[in-house]
Simulated assay, not measured.
Amino acid sequence: MDFSDSSTFSTASGKDYHYVVLQVTLKEKFLGTGSGNLTELEEAINHQAQKGYRLHTITTSNGGSKGLMGGDRIQATMVFEKVI
Results as ranks from 00 to 15, higher is better:
H18M: 03
I58S: 10
I45C: 01
D5Y: 11
S65R: 12
H18Y: 10
G71W: 09
Q48E: 13
S13H: 01
R54L: 08
V21S: 09
I58L: 15
Q75N: 13
G52R: 10
F3K: 10
T59K: 11
S6L: 03
Y19F: 11
H56S: 07
G34D: 00
E81M: 10
S4R: 14
L22K: 06
I74Y: 05
T57N: 10
T77L: 04
G63K: 07
Q48D: 03
T59S: 12
T60Y: 02
N37K: 09
N46F: 05
A44C: 15
Q48M: 13
N46K: 14
L55D: 04
F3I: 11
F9P: 07
M69V: 12
L55V: 01
I58K: 06
V79S: 05
G64S: 02
G63H: 13
T60H: 08
M1L: 10
F3W: 14
L68S: 13
L26N: 03
F30D: 03
S7W: 01
I45K: 06
A44P: 09
I58P: 04
K27N: 12
F3T: 02
Q48Y: 05
G32R: 07
K82E: 12
E81Y: 06
M69W: 09
A76P: 09
T59N: 09
H56V: 03
S35V: 11
Q50M: 10
E28W: 04
L55Q: 02
E28Y: 10
L22C: 08
S35C: 14
T57R: 09
S61I: 01
F9C: 15
S6G: 02
Y17V: 00
D5Q: 10
D16C: 01
A12S: 06
V21R: 05
G14V: 00
T59C: 15
K51D: 01
L68V: 08
T60W: 03
A76R: 00
G52E: 06
I84R: 07
S65V: 08
H56N: 11
E43W: 03
Y19I: 04
S35I: 05
L26V: 07
D72G: 14
I74P: 01
T77N: 04
N62W: 11
K15I: 04
A49L: 04
N37C: 01
A76W: 02
A44E: 07
F30A: 03
E43G: 02
M69F: 14
E42V: 15
M69A: 15
Q48C: 00
T39Q: 00
V79F: 02
Q50A: 12
G14T: 00
M69K: 02
S61C: 05
L31H: 14
K51S: 00
G64D: 00
H18Q: 15
E81G: 04
G34Q: 03
M69T: 13
Q48W: 02
E43N: 08
M78E: 13
G71C: 11
F30V: 12
T39L: 00
F30Y: 13
T8L: 07
A44L: 11
N62M: 08
V83K: 09
S65E: 12
A12W: 00
L38V: 09
Q23I: 01
S13G: 14
